[in-house]
Structures are given as structure tokens and as C-alpha cells.
Design a binder for these strands. Sequence first.
RNA 1: CGGGGUGUGGCCCAGUUGGUCUAAGGCGCCUGGUUUGGGACCAGGAGAUCGUGAGUUCAAAUCUCACCACCCCGACCA
Length: 408
Amino acid sequence: MRQSDLFTKTIKEIPKDEQSFNAQTLIRAGFIDKLASGIYSYLPLGLKVLNKIRNIVVSEMEDLGGQEISMPSLATKENWLATGRWDTMDVLFKLGAADKKEYALNPTHEEIISPLASKFISSYKDLPFSVFQIQTKFRNEKRAKAGLMRGREFLMKDLYSFHENQVDLDAFYERAILSYERIFDKVGLGDKTFLTYASGGSFSKYSHEFQTESESGEDIVYYCPNCDIGINKEIIDEQKNCPKCENSDLEEKKSIEVANIFKLGTKYSKPFNLVYKDREGNDKTVIMGCYGIGISRIMGSVVEVCHDDKGIIWPENIAPFKVHLLSLSADNEAEEIYKQLQEAGIEVLYDNRKASPGEKFADSDLIGCPYRLLVSSRSLKEGKAELKHRKSGEVEMIDLGGIVNKLQ
RNA sequence: CGGGGUGUGGCCCAGUUGGUCUAAGGCGCCUGGUUUGGGACCAGGAGAUCGUGAGUUCAAAUCUCACCACCCCGACCA
């Protein structure tokens, strides 16, 4: 994409109505725009990142056996009354409609998927199965905060699994954990993200979270370096040692909850009479699990974790573009390289603007593509272009003819 | 929801013991010119219900009251 065509521009000043690094930087670089507290637009660069995270998650969920669906954002009051959460869930957005009925904007989808699943589950032969969606959630937070980290509207992946019995759920749950670990590796948070024991609420003793270590996080986790797992502060009173190795020498870390998985048991299958006939012809209640990942929160977390004082350092898998091509008084040559890269299918943002070198460098660092390819009158004297790695700062000169090969 | 802070062109801000404020500056934007390896320079130009509404006053960005929005701390958080 030619940068001159890009709908957005970078801004030099830090927006004063944002305090968090992720929001300040994503707004400055033109990835997102704030409409109101906790409500953001995703602009071309931001949407590219979001979609890449989405695709990674979809691919892993499909490998896990999940089938993608899309459930409504609106729900009837009846769905939420059925579980009692119409009255108890205080983040539930409630609204009226022209038919005088009341509706909710779904903050999560157990109330939707459970009755939906009951339409297709009648026999043990229908189990197990799992479905997932990547969809906008609405939560009426009393206080939205920290940019993408806690919004009133945000993108989430939620997968729901359905099983005959606890053993089957447990096995699936373990596989889901492995899928999640692969997801965090792929989006570039693997080194900083660990499985964490957390409160299971009323369903089971513990649920699990994936926590990404960051000073900007809201959670406090006690981390076992031997096992690379953590214990959320909320349960440290009852679980003081590492659940795996019994180590009691745990490190306190601030971290961001990027995913949360639960063994729901029959909590939601019961109210919706989600049952199946077992081999003896008896009705049995379906056992459920649910598995959430904050897609937009991952985007914010990556910015919090992967940056320097000049801007974002996108992991290659989720960068808006692989290469940022800059031309300094070398427009003809840069144009030619741009076409070659395009034809080779290499994602490239081409800064063809009439701007000063300093401005182009600063914008390139801010936007944070993994590779900066610079063509200038200086580099052309040697018949080369300069390739700079955003993360390491390493610079290498490449023959003009070898650029595509190098970047493939 | 409790506490604290902030609100002035698209962005960052000065101005707030009421009075040539007919609102200054920087960024950005437009025109012309000079520049080109780390946010260049010169000249000209456009762009402002001073968050909103009442009120006090001869006079309000500035004082009073109410409300709204955003940020931060806390509470809350499937």
C-alpha cells in the first residue's frame, strides 16, 4: 500500500485523553481512534493487525476441532432470565426495542449457545463437539480503562465445548490449553505469557487464565519459574504453592489477563435443559466448557510488551505490513521495488510521501513494521538498498536485485 | 459508584486577582519557493459556539451554580 493513499496520518503529540501506552501509541500511529471511553474504531492499519490475530486464533480453534459460527450481539431478556443473570450481571447492557420488549447486548454467549446447542444435541452420538465465534462483546463497565485493555465494546473469541462426561471435558480442556499456548507463541507473546490458576467461580474449584507479564497489567500473579505457571492473587490464600511442583518460592508479577478458560459443568446446560440420551436411553445433562481469548486485548497487550521509546515493534506474524519501504529522493527505484514486492506477495507499506527523512524515519519506527527497507540516493550509489530490522536495529545493505529473495 | 484531575481551532497548549482577548504560540492543513539520512526553512493563508446551560456584571475563556465528557486511584470484573 502506498502511504500517500493511507486514510490515516500519524500525529506527533501524545493525545492527552489517553494515559495508557497502548492507546496513546496506537492512536498516534493511526491504528485506532477513540469514539468514547472504552469504544474504539479500528482504522486500516489496526484492522490489519486485528485480522491477523483473528486468523491465527481461527486456525488454532479449527485445529482443535471447533466449528466457526456467529451468534447475535442482541439477546432476548428471556435468555438472560433463564440463568438469572439478567439481574445479577451488572455489566449487562440492557436496552428496549420498538416492540416494547427488553433486550441485552451479549457480554458473553453461554445464554445463547446453550439453547442453540440443545436444538441439535439429542444423543450421546452427537457428542462431543465444539463451536466458536469471533465476535464483538459488550460490557457495561463502570470504568473502562487502559485503551484496548478494558473496553465497553471489544472483540473476543469464545469457544464452547460439549461433552458426555467430565473425563471427556478434561481431555478437551488440556488440548485447548495447548492450542492457546500455540496462539500466544504465534502472536509474539509466548515468552511473557503463562498459564495461571484462578478462581473458578461457582463452577469448579479453579479456572485457568493466560496471563501476560506486563507492568501495565491489572492482575497480580504469583509465578513459579520452575513450571512457568502462575496463581492469581485472588486464590493465593487457598493455593499458596505451585500446584505442579509445590514450590513455595513464587515471584509476584503484574500481568494482563489475555485469556480465560472454564469448566462450566452443567451450570448453563441445566437451565436450558441441554440433555442427551445415553447408551441406556437415560437423559443426561451435557457437560460444558468455555474458552475465551480477547482478540483486541491481545493487540493492546502486544503494544504494551513489544515497543521501544520510538514506537511499536510488531511481531512479524501480526504486523500490519512485513516491510516498510522508504524512498529518499529515489522515487523511481523505490517504485520499481514496490512493484516487485507486491508481485512477490510481500506485504509492503510504501512511504512515497513528499516528506523529510526525519519524518519518514520517525513514522516508520512508530508504526513498527518488522523490516524497514530504505532506498536513497546514497544507497543507490552502491546499487543497494538498506534493510533495517525494527527489533534488533541491525542494518544490512542488499543488492537491488536481491531484495525480493531476501525478504521472502 | 466513591475520590482526585482535566476540558481553549483537527492535535499539543498559553491565557483564568473579570477590562484593547477583536483569544497568543507550536504541530498539522492550504499557496508559493528553497530543502532532503532522524519529526527542515522562508513568505503568505484558512481554521475557535473558549465542554454545555443558566446566572452575576457596564463588561466573562476568566466569577457562581448545575450538568456533560475524558483521564487516573479505588470498588466492581464470566
